Simulated scan of single mutants.
Amino acid sequence: MLPLTRDQKHLVDQILAFTTDHVNETGPAVFTVYGDAGTGKSVILAHLFNQLQTAARTQPNSPLTQTTNYFLVNHPEILKVYREIAGQAPHLLKKDFQRPTTLINQLAKGQTTADVLVIDEAHLLLSQSDHYNNFYGDNQLRSLLTAAKVIILVFDETQVLRMKSYWTEERLERLLMPYPHQHVRLTHQFRMQASDALVTWINDFTHGHVHHLPKDIGTHYDLRIFNDAEQMRQTIVAKNNQVGLSRIVSTSGYPSTLDGGKHYITEGHFHLPWDQYNYTSTPWAELPQTIDEVGSIYTCQGFDLNYVGLILGPPLTLSPQDQLEVHLDRYTDVEAFKRRADITDKQELIAVKKQLILNAVNVLMKRGVQGLYIYAHDAHLRQFLGAK
């Protein structure tokens, strides 16, 4: 685990105090950590959960002694990382880390109980039933609130990617209103070695406001706009050979079907397949062969890459008036837009769908620690951004 800063240690202590204050009550009590991608939410949770389980398993005088606690994340690739961490820590077990649906179904069958739940990427919790994934309730967080005494979760509404897990801060706060709760908001960017001006530019872009790139991108950050996707790929391969953990990723908008076959992204001389389903215990980005694949939000969300080469696909164009346009009919991730009964207004639905696409861009743009390379399918957008 990465070491904590002084402020992060203080926050872990604050959450632990909140937890011990409420763990012997009937519950539930909720502590929410808000923060954009790269603000250190996951490292805080990892340290917090390690301390929770150490107290539960080794400290007989602690209020947490012999409590049953779980760490949940609704993302199979991130789950692999946490289970790898568990193998290196003396008081963590791999079974402590679960997908939410798995735990919800175990709780419903009386196979386990839960005192404290720590939820990473809570914006990925299902907010409607999903029979394909064996969740038959109407909201995963609501189901977990009925079972636990304390819930600690991290949340970023700009990383919501699918209608079936559609959340906003307002919806979350409305759900939590009846319960004792506290929250903090993290703002400092830890992942990207980029300037505040560039992070602001990314945030503006992913809310539909396109400006020219700032002059100050950060002394130790490499930002390039490419006019050729194959040239960008070759540059990423070179970076991967130099420092590792460098990958090509893309937004949706290219052929993609979950049928077990390979589907390719083609842009001029660039021709690579989408990421394949990863059956190993190693995260996608750490597999050497994935340098010859294109990552998606489903393999890259929550991960640090050293350099990321991002393809902005056909759904994103720039109008002659330099306004960003989002074309829903060009989005090929059919899973993203499953119908929701609670959003009936047509204009609201269109706005939500467009924001989900921009959220995916936000997730992908913030993967790179040391650099971001961009190729846009739309020629006008490429030129506006300064492709050479």
Rank of each mutant, 00 (worst) to 15 (best):
M1V: 15
R6D: 13
A17E: 15
A17R: 14
T19N: 06
T32V: 07
V33C: 06
L48D: 06
Q59N: 06
P63C: 00
L64D: 07
V73S: 02
N74Q: 15
R83L: 11
E84V: 13
I85T: 12
Q98A: 10
L103H: 04
A108E: 06
A108L: 04
A108H: 05
G110C: 11
D120E: 04
Q128V: 05
N134H: 15
A147M: 03
F155D: 04
E157L: 05
L161E: 03
L161F: 07
K164A: 07
W167T: 03
L175M: 07
R185N: 14
L186R: 00
A194G: 09
A197G: 06
D204M: 07
D204S: 01
L223S: 11
F226D: 05
D228Q: 00
A229S: 02
A238H: 02
V243I: 09
S256A: 14
P273L: 00
D275S: 12
T282K: 13
P283M: 05
P283V: 04
S296Y: 02
D304M: 09
I311T: 01
P315E: 08
L318K: 08
P320E: 10
Q321P: 05
Q321H: 08
E335A: 10
R340A: 11
K353I: 14
G371F: 03
A379E: 10
H380Q: 12
R382C: 09
F384W: 12
